[in-house]
Design a protein around this nucleic acid. Structure first.
Lengths: 148, 148
DNA sequence: GGAATATGGTCAAGCTGGTTGACCATTTCG
DNA sequence: CGAAATGGTCAACCAGCTTGACCATATTCC
């Protein structure tokens, strides 16, 4: 792949990612969950799988544990999650989603499906599946970081 | 496409985009251009096509013109661009890249090619081309926004 | 032509979301 | 047991953006 092509690929990837994030967040807000930013969505994604500690969340989001703690403050204050004592470590606290938090996660899934739909119409079902499989092979499993 | 799949696709897309941004920026820094953030790269991309006004840049980046003006201050101070009087409008100024700015743009192209290389090895040349064509069809041409 | 309005740009102040550094409670290791 | 490591929070600070006010030049319209 030549240089300018690689840059075009990168720009397209970033542009698509930004658009998608925006649409998902808009969709979540439209479903009645206010005061949320995309970062909260990524936190929910991690929490929905059995909860997590602040430190685990920080690693997942690629920020300091102080920043993660602030974010947890926020979603707790808004009723999406709660801090419980950790069952195996008295130092730690387990952050778990409330029912409202789980409802919000489902809303995000719906919004994502809705956001992807125009792409499916554009590329067709088969190509979307291929795209997904390519991206899954490419995507690192490390922390999810903002694009810039 | 079912809900959880759409979310998985989104996560993969965002993850890949974040990783790519990081690598390109690292590559640019490694080539000796310091003090730059990914946002600067997107500004350069717009400027390299004949320059732009602050307002045009702001629209391209999806920020206020004040924010764009600050960003221009920065890259001017660091020697990547300069403000010239606009040839057709005495109110406006045309921001153009300096030779150093163009060199940095070339470095970004190299870094992008380098960042994409492992993906080419993973998927093969043909699939990468397909991926690019899919993304180009999907990507909106609107402002480039951060992923979250 | 000239007043009214729109547009390009900058300055200043403030907010938000992150950082670093210090600290306490608890756990783990030697 | 004591020392070091780990989970978490508090506090102070900082970068990058926003809003609001303002000036200079262009454009519109009578």
């Amino acid at each position: 792949m030549q240089n300018p092509e690689a840059l075009a690929l990168s720009a397209a990837l970033l542009s698509a990612a930004g658009e998608l994030t925006q649409r998902i967040n808009d969709g979540v807000v439209a479903r009645g969950f206010e005061g949320l930013r995309p970062a909260h969505g990524f936190a929910f994604a991690r929490l929905s799988w059995g909860g997590a500690t602040v430190t685990e969340l920080a690693a997942h989001l690629g920020v300091t544990k102080q920043a993660a703690s602030q974010l947890v403050d926020e979603i707790v204050r808004k009723g999406y999650a709660e801090r419980r004592p950790h069952p195996e470590d008295a130092r730690a606290r387990l952050i778990v989603l409330t029912e409202r938090g789980r409802a919000c996660t489902r809303a995000a899934e719906e919004a994502a499906a809705e956001a992807v739909r125009p792409w499916t119409e554009l590329l067709g079902e088969a190509e979307i599946r291929l795209l997904q499989s390519q991206l899954l092979r490419i995507a690192p499993s490390g922390p999810i970081k903002p694009v810039w």
